[in-house]
Design a protein around this nucleic acid. Structure first.
Lengths: 199, 199, 199, 199
DNA sequence: TTTTAATCGAGACGGTACGTCTCGTCTTAAA
DNA sequence: TTTAAGACGAGACGTACCGTCTCGATTAAAA
């Protein structure tokens, strides 16, 4: 699970002393999420999370280096659950469906706001950019590439296609619209897929 | 005697106040720009700008409501100068040239970093998003639309083309690459133009 | 007049249309006085005086080096008018009458508040202490000494009396009571005179 | 999910907060004292105290409402230690000794400068006057009265003596001389005691 | 009557300190 | 040993005044 990375090993083998409190962990993640949605990224403070989660600040700093790591935990967990990359069916259809889900995710769901906030914060701090790549962008991109590769292997996509250029041409417009507050309609997404994948 | 409300004669003498100091204005804009590039958005503080510009904090607060407004001033001034929208020649060539300039602006120039930082900050604060639209995105988009409209009028682009969808499909991938720290090569831009405008 | 001291010599030499505006001068003195009574010494700011007097800050700085000088102007003017040192009659009676007037001045009149405020400020700043001595305490003390000397000359007071010790023993308790907010009754003053001058 | 109000279990764990840091407290008191003596009351700033004491401003504001409260703390501590009210021996001798100590305290010791500064500030701000009474003047006056009462009980002082009038007649001249920068000699004090207590 | 120079109100400027806020670290006592 | 509570050093926030400095407009004596 995504958050395991920030957590000491959880296998309940034998010794008890080093037990992380799961209630506290969830309370922190939810509090951070809520604060982001209610008040924006600036309204997410460690102090505020601690107060809302009923947890001591030190407990947060013990397990997460910064508030960005908390938000990354919630993003990774939520995106893994709610923004799955399809692994069957015709690839163009799979891509279209994935991009529609991405549009919905970015514009309608709380976790989408977290994604946009983290992408925003990555512009402000190099450390955030690095973490965002490592924990979210890169693993996801790997799976997105695999999806396209399957299309190439199946002959649905041309052999010489530049995977990253294609993916950025598909994802970029959707993210850009979300970032600028523009609506991302199904029509916009479908036209995009048509232009990029079927030309 | 002390309680008398005596006041100096109120004849409207002295009408013209001191005018704004242009040196101070420029020093502030440059200091903000420098700090953003050197230390990132978080390193841009009103206190730091004042210190580096050799200006009093109050002078900053007198003319700018927030540091975002300062950065917007530098962005708008710089983008107007260095990221002009071509107004002659074949439209596809003009668009290609404009997007190449945009790619260079975003990845190589200080003002491009300001743009990305403001787009990032717009994710954190609604007020910034509004200002960013009013001062930068919307006016620029109007001119970008005009460029495409010229292409439609000249028969270079199909009559029914969705201007905003086209623009977001062109600009989105470039901005997204810049946001994620990916290189934005001339090849990527040219392929994009080919796909979107010549399909 | 007291304020002349802060003003350059007024001989109309050569070509000088440099006439000081008397309205502004009075407005400033009254505004300072009012602010002191209404808000205390801390509430007396040059900015506040200027605003209330309807005068420019520069006009104040042109004629007075600091707000203390403004208050000294009002104090000296008022004390000269309302706290006269008697120069006839039996000396003990004259002293008693003077001290009764002093008690009233300190506890009931606005100018008394100015005196206490300046004595207070003299504890905070050496420059104020010096000015306060030069403009108020020393000249007044000279006249108080003259009063007692008249008593010695007339044989009403013993020849070897220490003038300053006697004056401080009379004035000290009254001022101290005023400083600590204690009432200064006629009985207190009269008993003081009896103890100090008739023992 | 994000909006759920999940909170860590609220069993009252962790009960004891950190206690106040005595080192910081003393460093603040000493820094304030030093600054007052070196630069006068105006030179005592919260910022300056914090810097000299090596303490954060917030730590000062956490424990003291204002710089006046800091100075009152040092005054009360020092006066309790160095300006004791004698409680044995003939009362006239005790009073003479106390007043000599007061003269020395006011003119020679740092804490005496604090006392004069606070008495000065009390003229500027009603709140300071109140605090100064509650924390310093009133408790001390109670003990001073007790001293005189002992003299009355012992028959050393007349039965009908007005305690406060007597005390103000003794203390007033000494404080007044200190306030006006005049020397307070042993001869002045002794003559005062003679006049006021033995007439 | 024109010139000329000091006055005036207005307010921008570089500064200092204010009192508040949040950060991330450190300390304590209870569980 | 981990937790909740919260004190701590650090430093930015936005505000209030400081004292200096233009800036036109006004004004009145000297030329």
């Amino acid at each position: 699970m995504a958050t395991e990375k920030t957590t000491a090993s959880r296998a309940p083998k034998g010794r008890a002393p080093q037990r992380r409190n799961e209630d506290a962990r969830l309370a922190v993640l939810h509090a951070a999420d809520d604060l982001l949605v209610e008040r924006g990224f600036g309204g997410v403070t460690v102090e505020g999370i601690a107060a809302r989660a009923g947890v001591a600040k030190q407990t947060i700093y013990r397990w997460w280096p910064s508030k960005v790591d908390i938000l990354l935990d919630t993003l990774v967990e939520d995106a893994d659950k709610r923004l799955k990359i399809p692994d069957e069916g015709p690839v163009v259809d799979a891509v279209r469906s994935y991009l529609r889900a991405l549009a919905r995710f970015l514009t309608k769901e709380d976790a989408g706001k977290v994604l946009l906030a983290l992408l925003g914060e990555a512009q402000h701090e190099a450390e955030t950019a690095t973490l965002f790549h490592e924990r979210y962008l890169d693993p996801r991109r790997a799976r997105e590439r695999a999806l396209l590769k399957r299309g190439v292997a199946a002959g649905e996509l041309p052999a010489g296609v530049n995977l990253d250029a294609t993916l950025d041409s598909l994802i970029g417009p959707i993210v850009y619209r979300a970032l600028t507050g523009a609506p991302v309609t199904r029509g916009f997404v479908d036209a995009l897929v048509d232009r990029v994948l079927e030309s």
